[in-house]
Amino acid sequence: MRILKTVIIAAMLSGASTAAFAGEPPAKLEGPAIAQVADISVGLKGLVCDFCSIALNKTFKKDKAVAATYVDLDTKTLSIVLNAGKGLTDAQIEKLVKKAGYNVTEITRKTAG
């Protein structure tokens, strides 16, 4: 029994450290905080309600490059945090936004440094 418990704890610790090194955002990174650390900010047309936010969040989160997203109705922007070592081209972003049912007005990337 003790051996089983040790194995489970070891597996959990191993999983946690793997997630940390994979560049995933901290578990608490959600909501407007995502906009503060976003790698990419996408201006959008057609954003009028929370269903729009859900459509964009769900569509982008299916992409392996995306770690977290946040849609701000006031600023009409989608903020994207990328997974470490991953990228999204402008064409890929426009394609995903269109798939969700919206249009891009501008794409701004965080400058290095």
């Binding site: 047309k45 057609g46 954003l47 009028v48 729009c52 009409k76 049912g101 919206y102 249009n103 007005t105």
Partner: peptide, 12 residues
Amino acid sequence: RLFKRWNEVDSQ
């Protein structure tokens, strides 16, 4: 079927 959507900056 969604025949057509018009997305504008402040409307849909």
